[in-house]
Every structure is written in structure tokens, then in C-alpha cells.
Nucleic acid binder design. Structure first.
Length: 890
DNA sequence: CTGTTGTGCAA
DNA sequence: TATTGCACAACAG
């Protein structure tokens, strides 16, 4: 073995923190914590580790208090501004990071990081070690030598004696001399006024040291001589200030600076929290466990063996591989299973490419697995189970017993998180970078179907999915318990998974002819509007482009501008409505825009999404998207089908029941206000709901002090706006804007409201308080949503957080209630053996496809299960409508 | 071809 | 300067 010199790396932590902070101006995580300095610092650390793999290292920080330099010179660093307020909270995180990397960290009271570094560098260099100082600070150049070099990772430069000499005109020993003369404005080191670095280098090159220069100052000519005479003492003081202490008694030897193995779990948690997803991936890219036992199942004997393993295991995880992201088009290509961490199987069923190995038959495998998959008592785990349920249902297997969906569990743990995808969960919770789909199937136009992926590759990809899912379960289950989400998870969210799968499976019938006719009419109207608009403008332009509209209205026609957007002048409804009085073009543009919107988003888009086999639209209900617990709908979004305008309502006529049936729409009346009445325990609201009054009218009575009969339409409208405003935490400004009144007046309405409904005011404050105390708020069923921004120093962010603290419990409790109702209705319909099918959910409304013969029974059942979903201090009223299309059902 | 912006639909 | 979503067309890189 060759005897490599021992190496030591000394990282100037404090200097990097500052440099990173100023180099990266804007970076923060979704919780409002600034992360710019942390990010820069981490990058530096990772770079040093990656490129130098140090075995001995110290990260050195400045100690909190003043250093000894302050004692010799009170003005030292006096001009330094206080640490920026968004940097302060980053410091402890950086120290956590260093700890998680398991690296030695040092700081010493009374001394700066540079002194510690100088001491350690000199000491170890004297012992024959090769020392690298990682810093960008020129002060440290004074300790550079043959054994000590300096590395600036941000500039990617290494400084040895030669590089130092180039800048300071001599060996590293000249550094302090030059700095003593030139001073340093950032540290408030005075030096000699009028002498900068260039002059100082010249003088030192000639005289060697400050002392020598001062002794022979008469050899210097002109004004500089006077300066030197006057400020000589100051130069000597400066020299003391810039000279680093290199003889501190640290009592630290080489062995104490050995680097440890990084704590993967801690790092993962930190990177996750900081939302350093890219770094997370990079760091863990190499750390995939190669010991995983992933096997393909190719023979009946192997299948039997697998099934025996699956039967023995208390819980199994599984995952399907298919040809499409859309489960209703997807063909099954393979299934994977895991029973314990690190071991998983993949059964290829439908890989077909030239030279593909012999695979077991699909029918055979599914028949053998059917008893297990359909057994409700066999506990199963899956990631995004809804997808697998649908794929297998399409393949003829009704999977039961899926009692843990890792995606849903992760969502309950943090509903505000951006992604609950397996890759990010594996990274965040397991510190593991999983094989990306694109790595086995390619991406973009090169992407191939999973059926064409080589079986060997498919095994490592698919088996990993089942394995990781099982490992995620092991992490997530205790987390759910910790967060007290178990009941909500097992009694509401998990039952809902299968129900949503069923709703997507059913889909809703849509008549393409209705949409086609509508589209044709719109086409004509749009063409006419376009002609008018171009004529009024005197030129032809793209009405769909806000930018071009801006050019025409504000530059060509010289109409008054309204608000600005990031890229130009706003042309939104509000602006155009104001412009309508100035010029007839504005109203036409508005008409054109809303019609084009309806046509593009609905009448033209929906027919394309009608499934060719079923004649129905199968939307996707997403259970892990919203921060509040609501569902969302996509591909297409059926939760925003128009209803307000006449044109819009006609789109609803295209949504129709199955042959021989009707559509039944059941919606909760004023559910969020009822929840407010319940949670705030506000008697006036409770009494009003108990009596079945018009709540907005009643609110108007209270705040305007008039009798119910005397409430004008205008007053009711205003009360309604206030009622909704309360749910969203609205202020006087926005109320004024939406009512078109002045702020004072709006404030007086709000005052009157809280005067008459004091418990509501208490409730709102209690929610803000709760958020400040716990950093989260809760719904009726204990669903939690974190609101870390509640402590943000930024007023805008904090106000936003406070509004969320009010809105989440109300919107979220409504979501809880309708989810419970969905489970109750679904199960009740099943027990009754009815053919009525739940097909849509629109936040406070459920839509059913009902055979005509079952109508009355269904109506009663649905009403009962919805109204009795939870018991509140106010009744839950459900309005039910029935019709031959969705519009009529309202 | 992909991500962002402005806009607008729903509860 | 009112909450939560999704999707479209235009546009920038």
C-alpha cells in the first residue's frame, strides 16, 4: 500500500453562509422558510464530499458573541449590518444539516472561524498533513503554504502560494502586510486612507513589512508620506486585526475530525422539509440497495411458491404494470408483490417484443391469484390503489381488502404537500431514489409501452415498486397514529378509495349530439363577434391573446388602462367591464372570451373524452390533491361545469342518465355556514337553521336591523356576500370591492356582523390562535392541515396563513361530511342491492344515475344517509332534484 | 416540446 | 387586498 499523505479539510462555514445568502437571492420552501443560504451551503458541502471525499474535516463557524478583535478595536466590524432577518432562522438548520452529514463542527467563543482554521491548518501542516481550507475569504490566504491550499468552490479555484503571490506580490506572509495598509471596509479595518490594495502591494513589495515601511517612511514621496506619518499607528493596529490567531488551544487532534457516515434518515427528512428534491435525488442516486432480492415469476411452480408466500404473510403489497396511465384504457402487463422489505416478485404477463421470454398466461395467473385478491380479510397495501383496483377490475378481478393506500396515508400526514407520488415518498421517507419510469420506458417521443420493456428491466422496476410500497407502509402507519389520523383514514378515506374507483368505473353518460349542436351555434356566434371586434378595432388580431387585446385597446384605441399584470396591462373581466362604458368593443371581447372559453373547455373538449366502449365520461377523482380534504376532478374536471350563465347551463343538458333512468342530484344546503353555526356555537345561526329560514335574509335582518319582510334584495345580496366573506376570512377592502361600496361602509357592515354574531368573531380568533399554537388546524373529524406560515415575518404571507386557518376547518369539515355521506350512501345502496349508482361528486353535491323504478327508494335512502352523515347542532338539509339531464335535476 | 402566465369555470 | 381546485390558449425559452 502506498503511503498517501493524510488530508484534512477545513470549511469556513460562516463565510459560506453569507456568500450563499447573497449569491442566491430568492429561494424558500412552501412553508415560507427562506432556504437560499442553506441551499448554497449544502451545495458546497456536497461538492466537497463528491469531489474530494475527505476522511477528516471540520466545519468551522464564527461563535455568537464578539471576538477578541472587538476588544483591541471597538469599531471592528461596527459597520456590519445585523444579520438579515431571513438568514437568522437558516443558521440552526445549517447546523442540523452538518450534524446529519455527521461532520465535525467547531466554534469557539471569542474567536472567529478564521482563527480556528488558521490554528488547525498550521498545526496539522506542521505534522506533515495536506490541508485544504475551503473558503472564499482572502483573509485566510495568509496561512496558505506548500502544505496548505485554499479552495473556493463557488469560483472553482484553488489557491496555492503561487496564486497568493500573484495577488499580493509576495508570499502568503505578505497578505497581512498588504491588508494592514489597504484596510477592509467590510470588516471596518481602517488601514491607511488613500492606500488601496494596488498601492499596498507596491509598497510592501518594496519595504517588505509595515514596520519597515513606517521606519523608512521618508523614502516615500508626496502625499503618501503624510498619510503614513499620520496613520502609521492605525496601520499597525490594522495589522493586529487582520493577523489570524494560529496558536489557539483547541485540544482537538486529527482523530477527532474523522468524518462519519451521513445519517440518511435525518438528511432525507431535512431535504424533504427544505424541498431540496433535486439534491435529495442526487445525493441518494448512488445509494440504491443492491442487495434487494427481486425475482421474476415465469413458471407455474414459481407462481405456486409465490402464492404460498403471499398466503403466509400478514400483509402484502402489490402493484400493477400496464400500457397506459388511464386505467380504463390500460391493459395489464404484469403484477408485482412484496411481503417483506427487500424482497419482491414480478409476474410478467404481457410483455411482447422480439425475443421476449415465455410468460405465464394472463388468465391462469389471475385465476390463481383471484382468491387472494378478492378476499376482503387479506390485508393489502398499494400506492394509489384506485388505479390498480380499476385495472384489475377491467381484467375481471374485484380486488377487496386494500386497507392501506400509501398515497392516501401520506396525504393525511400532510395534505398541503405537493406530491404524494411514490418516487418522492421513497426519497422523503426512505431516503431512496427509485427507478424512474422514464429510465425503463424512455420519455417524450422515444417512450415505449411497458409491454415493450425488457422483462429483466421490468422486474427491477416493478418489484421495486411493490417493495417500496411495503416499506412506505411501515413508515407511514406509525406516522398516522402519531398524527391521530387513524380513524379518519380507516373509516373514511380508505373506504372511499374503492368508492371513487367505482364512480370512475361507472362514469357519467354524455350525449355528444347535444354538445355538437351547441358547439355549432357557438361557432357562428363567435364568428360574428370576431367580425364585429375586428371592425371596431380597425384591424385583425387574435382575440384569444390578452397581449394583443392590450395592444389594440390601450395603444391603438387609446382606451384608459386599468391594473397592470407582470407582463402588461390587465384585460380581465373587471377591467373590460369598466371599459364597456368607454367603447363598445369591450363588451364584445367579453362575450367572445366567455363563449370561446365554454366552447374550448367544454363543448369541444368533452365529446373527445367519451369512452368509445361505454359512451360515458370517466373522470378521475383525486383524493390527495387539495389542502383542505376536498376531492378534485380531472381529465376532464367535472367539478367546474358551468351553471351560472344560460349558455353554460346548456352544457349540463348533455349530461344524461343511462337508458331507462333519471339523474338525481342531491346537494347539501349551505353546508359551510351550517358548520360555522355548529363550530362557532353561534345561537342566532343555529336558531335560524333550525327554523329553516333563509340564512342570508336573516343575516341581513341582523346587520341592517330590519324586519325580515323589510329586507331588500340588495340587502340580502350584501348579507350573502358577507356570509361568504366570513368563510374565507375576508377583510374590509375586499368586501368593499365586491360590494362596490367604500371601505368605511364595508367595515361598518363587518362590525355590525360581529356585533350581532359575537361567537363567530370568537371562532375566527380561536382558529388563528390554534394555528399559532399548534402550527396546524383541524376539521370536524380531526383532519389536520399544517399552517407553518402562521409565524411568517412577512405580513402578506402571514395574513394568507390566517385566512387559511379560518377556511381550512370550514371547507375541510364540509369535505369530511360529504365523504362520510358517500361511504354511507354507497354501502347502503349495496346492502339494499339497488342498481342506483353514484357517478359524480361536486364538493357539496352528489349525482346519481337512478333506474326509474328505484327513484323513490333511492331518493329516501340518499336523503337519509346524507342528512344523518354526522350529528351537528344544526340540521343538515339536503336538496334533491331529479331530471332527464343534469340541468333539469337542479 | 415544456413550463409559465393570464384568464375563467365550479363549490 | 376572499378559499380551494383544473384547464385552456398564448407565449417564452
Amino acid at each position: 500500500m502506498t503511503d498517501q499523505p493524510k488530508r484534512l479539510y477545513l470549511i469556513d462555514g460562516s463565510s459560506y453562509i453569507y456568500r450563499a445568502y447573497f449569491a442566491i437571492r430568492h429561494l424558500s420552501n412552501s412553508k415560507g422558510l427562506a432556504t437560499n443560504a442553506i441551499f448554497g451551503f449544502t451545495n458546497m458541502l456536497l461538492k466537497v464530499m463528491r469531489e474530494h471525499a475527505p476522511d477528516h474535516l471540520a466545519v468551522v463557524f464564527d461563535a455568537r458573541g464578539p471576538s477578541f478583535r472587538k476588544e483591541i478595536y471597538p469599531e471592528y466590524k461596527a459597520n456590519r449590518a445585523a444579520m438579515p432577518e431571513d438568514l437568522v432562522p437558516q443558521i440552526p438548520v445549517i447546523k442540523d444539516l452538518v450534524r446529519a452529514f455527521n461532520l465535525p463542527a467547531l466554534e469557539l467563543e471569542g474567536f472567529e472561524a478564521d482563527d480556528i482554521i488558521a490554528t488547525l491548518a498550521k498545526k496539522h501542516a506542521a505534522q506533515g498533513l495536506e490541508v485544504t481550507i475551503v473558503s472564499g475569504d482572502k483573509d485566510l490566504m495568509q496561512v496558505v503554504s506548500e502544505q496548505i491550499r485554499m479552495l473556493d468552490t463557488m469560483k472553482d479555484k484553488v489557491y496555492g502560494p503561487a496564486e497568493v503571490a500573484e495577488r499580493f506580490g509576495g508570499g502568503p506572509d505578505k497578505v497581512v502586510e498588504v491588508q494592514a495598509l489597504a484596510g477592509d471596509s467590510s470588516d471596518n479595518i481602517p488601514g491607511v486612507p488613500g492606500i488601496g490594495e494596488k498601492t499596498a502591494v507596491k509598497l510592501i513589495a518594496e519595504f517588505g513589512t509595515v514596520e519597515e515601511l513606517l521606519a523608512r517612511f521618508d523614502e516615500v514621496k508626496g502625499k503618501m508620506r503624510d498619510k503614513l506619518r499620520e496613520f502609521g499607528e492605525q496601520a499597525l493596529l490594522s495589522k493586529r486585526l487582520v493577523t489570524l490567531k494560529d496558536d489557539l488551544d483547541l485540544g482537538i487532534d486529527y482523530d477527532a475530525l474523522a468524518t462519519g457516515e451521513p445519517d440518511r434518515a435525518a438528511l432525507t427528512a431535512l431535504f424533504g422539509e427544505l424541498e431540496f428534491h433535486k439534491l435529495q435525488q442526487e445525493f441518494f442516486a448512488e445509494s440504491r440497495d443492491r442487495n434487494d432480492d427481486y425475482r421474476g415469476v415465469f413458471t407455474e411452480a414459481e407462481l405456486d411458491q409465490l402464492i404460498r408466500e403471499l398466503e403466509k404473510a400478514p400483509r402484502i403489497s402489490f402493484d400493477t404494470e400496464t400500457t397506459s396511465l388511464d386505467p380504463l384504457c390500460a391493459e395489464l402487463v404484469g403484477i408485482s408483490f412484496a411481503v417483506q422489505a427487500g424482497a419482491a416478485w414480478y409476474i410478467p404477463l404481457g410483455h411482447h417484443y422480439l425475443g421476449a421470454p415465455e410468460q405465464l398466461g394472463r388468465e391462469l395467473v389471475l385465476e390463481r391469484l383471484r382468491p387472494l385478491l378478492e378476499d376482503p380479510r387479506k390485508s393489502k397495501i398499494a400506492q394509489n390503489a384506485k388505479y390498480d383496483l380499476l385495472v384489475l377490475r377491467r381484467a375481471g378481478v374485484e380486488v377487496r381488502g386494500v386497507d392501506f393506500d400509501t398515497m392516501v396515508a401520506s396525504y393525511l400526514g400532510n395534505p398541503a404537500a405537493k406530491s404524494h407520488g411514490m418516487d418522492s415518498l421513497a426519497a422523503d421517507l426512505l431516503g431512496r431514489r427509485t427507478i424512474a419510469f422514464s429510465e425503463v420506458a424512455g420519455s417524450g417521443k422515444n417512450q415505449i409501452s411497458f409491454a415493450e420493456v425488457e422483462v429483466d428491466k421490468a422486474i427491477s422496476y416493478a418489484a421495486e415498486d411493490a417493495d417500496v410500497t411495503l416499506q412506505l407502509f411501515e413508515k407511514l402507519e406509525p406516522m398516522l397514529k402519531e398524527a391521530e389520523q387513524e380513524k379518519l383514514f380507516h373509516e373514511v378515506e380508505m373506504p372511499l378509495v374503492g368508492i371513487l374507483a367505482d364512480m370512475e368505473w361507472q362514469g357519467v353518460r354524455v350525449d355528444p349530439q347535444v354538445l355538437g349542436t351547441l358547439s355549432g351555434e357557438m361557432e357562428k356566434k363567435l364568428a360574428a363577434l370576431e367580425r364585429d371586434i375586428h371592425e371596431l378595432a380597425g384591424c385583425s388580431f387574435n382575440i384569444g391573446s390578452p397581449k394583443q387585446i392590450g395592444e389594440v385597446l390601450f395603444e391603438k384605441l387609446k382606451l384608459p388602462r386599468g391594473r397592470k399584470t407582470k407582463t402588461g396591462w390587465s384585460t380581465d373581466v373587471e377591467v373590460l367591464q369598466n371599459l364597456a362604458e368607454e367603447h363598445p368593443i369591450a363588451a364584445r371581447i367579453l362575450d367572445h372570451r366567455s363563449l370561446a372559453k365554454l366552447k374550448g373547455t367544454y363543448t369541444d373538449a368533452l365529446p373527445k373524452l367519451i369512452h368509445p366502449d361505454t359512451g360515458r365520461i370517466h373522470t378521475s377523482f383525486n383524493q390527495t390533491v387539495t389542502a383542505t380534504g376536498r376531492l378534485s376532478s380531472s381529465d376532464p374536471n367535472l367539478q367546474n361545469i358551468p351553471i351560472r350563465s344560460e349558455e353554460g347551463r346548456r352544457i349540463r343538458e348533455a349530461f344524461i342518465p343511462a337508458e331507462g333512468g333519471v339523474l338525481l342530484a342531491a346537494d347539501y344546503s349551505q353546508i359551510e355556514l351550517r358548520i360555522l353555526a355548529h363550530l362557532a356555537d353561534e345561537e342566532m345561526l343555529q336558531e335560524s337553521f333550525a327554523r329553516g329560514e333563509d340564512i342570508h335574509r336573516r343575516t341581513a335582518c341582523e346587520i341592517f336591523g330590519v324586519f325580515p319582510e323589510m329586507v331588500s334584495d340588495e340587502q340580502r345580496r350584501q348579507a350573502k356576500t358577507i356570509n361568504f366573506g366570513v368563510l374565507y376570512g375576508m377583510g374590509a377592502f375586499s368586501l368593499a370591492k365586491s360590494l362596490g361600496i367604500d371601505r368605511k361602509k364595508a367595515q361598518s357592515f363587518i362590525d355590525a356582523y360581529f356585533e350581532r354574531l359575537p361567537r363567530v368573531a370568537d371562532f375566527l380568533e380561536a382558529r388563528r390562535e390554534e394555528a399559532r399554537k399548534n402550527k396546524y388546524v383541524q376539521t370536524l373529524l380531526g383532519r389536520r392541515c399544517a399552517i407553518p406560515e402562521i409565524d411568517s415575518p412577512n405580513q402578506g404571507i402571514r395574513s394568507y396563513a390566517e385566512r387559511n386557518a379560518i377556511n381550512y376547518p370550514l371547507q375541510g369539515s364540509a369535505a369530511d361530511i360529504i365523504k362520510v355521506a358517500m361511504v354511507r350512501v354507497f354501502e347502503s345502496l349495496g346492502r339494499a342491492g339497488m342498481k342506483t349508482r353514484m357517478v359524480l361528486q361536486v364538493h357539496d353535491e352528489l349525482v346519481f344515475d337512478v333506474p326509474e323504478s328505484e327513484l323513490e327508494k333511492a331518493r329516501e335512502l340518499i336523503r337519509r344517509e346524507m342528512e344523518e352523515a354526522v350529528k351537528l347542532k344544526v340540521p343538515l338539509d339536503v336538496d334533491i332534484g331529479v331530471g332527464k339531464n343534469w340541468r333539469e335535476a337542479h
